[in-house]
């Protein structure tokens, strides 16, 4: 479990460009869950991600992994980088090896595993992200953008981290590519027990795939909790430059329009955020409206 305890981070401290990126925040990333982090550009979410695996150390406060301060010594920080895997935005720009296989093997070989161990890790990681054995022998630079992205993610999965932190893993992919990569990651979470931290601008993706959401604004936590709890803070989210999932927007507008006509809408659950939930919430209500209500069996 990762725990942030009164963590702040200041860029350019003691210079004219001093800027507080993270302002005294505390939260926990629970084991085995998908935690989504949302926030507009400059809200501090990427700084938080970099502190999760000791890439940068907080200016004040502590980051704990399973109770131990990850910045207490250089050895501790080094160990943390294998336990907390960090996948940056557009990770495909970081591929550098001659073959896909070698690129994925880079992390595990730095962990001091033997050749067989490395091979096993590479095959396991490639399978999780859906890369065929044939692709392993080719150059990463011959692949399509979506495939490159998967190679980069496999390189981090191959280290078998306890926590996998991904910054915008689906950015720039088409709808099928998005749902495939996010689907594979959640499946990986289920089979391996790895916790996932998903940083994204897409409210729809975060709403669909997260168990917990942390919304950030101006270096602080605006609200956190289950997707339903977080997306019920409509006004705060909008005011801090975040959107609501499209479906939540529809439900809110329906409520507003009904209330304008004096219709009580307590029966309508506006905290839904997926098409499936909205469909299930609306269908019985709309069925009764064309006289078929009695025949509707839940």
């Amino acid at each position: 479990m990762i725990e942030f305890s009164d963590v702040s981070y200041v860029y350019g401290k003691h210079t004219p460009f001093e800027r507080v990126a993270v302002n005294n925040i505390s939260f926990k990333i629970e084991d085995g869950l998908v935690t989504g982090i949302i926030g507009h550009t400059g809200s501090g979410k990427s700084t938080v991600a970099q502190m999760m695996n000791a890439l940068i150390a907080p200016t004040s406060g502590k980051v704990l992994l399973n109770g131990a301060d990850i910045n207490s010594s250089r050895t501790e920080s080094y160990k943390t980088r294998f336990k907390v895997g960090l996948v940056f935005q557009y990770p495909e720009y970081q591929l550098f090896e001659e073959t896909v296989e070698k690129d994925i093997a880079y992390g595990p070989s730095n962990m001091g595993l033997d050749d067989n161990g490395i091979k096993e890790r590479v095959e396991m990681a490639a399978e999780f992200v859906g890369l065929s054995k044939q692709v392993l022998k080719s150059s990463p630079f011959e692949l399509s953008g979506g495939q490159k992205r998967r190679v980069a993610i496999a390189g981090v999965i191959a280290m078998q981290p306890e926590v996998l932190v991904l910054d915008e893993p689906a950015a720039g992919l088409d709808p099928r590519g998005r749902s495939e990569i996010l689907g594979r990651l959640t499946k990986y979470r289920k089979t391996s027990g790895t916790s996932l931290v998903l940083i994204s601008h897409s409210m729809e993706d975060v709403a669909e795939y997260s168990d917990r959401i942390i919304a950030m604004n101006d270096g602080r936590i605006l609200c956190s909790g289950t997707p339903a709890q977080v997306f019920s803070h409509h006004e705060e989210l909008k005011n801090s430059g975040l959107a609501l999932p499209q479906i939540t927007n529809i439900m809110l507008k329906v409520k507003e329009k009904c209330e304008k006509q004096g219709i009580n809408t307590d029966f309508l659950d506006s905290s839904v955020f997926t098409v499936e939930d909205a469909y299930n919430a609306l269908l019985p209500i709309l069925r009764t409206s064309d006289g078929k209500g009695d025949s509707y069996v839940k």
Partner: peptide
């Protein structure tokens, strides 16, 4: 939202 609200109304 408009269509759904009208239907509920």
């Amino acid at each position: 939202a408009q269509i759904i609200a009208a239907l509920i109304a």
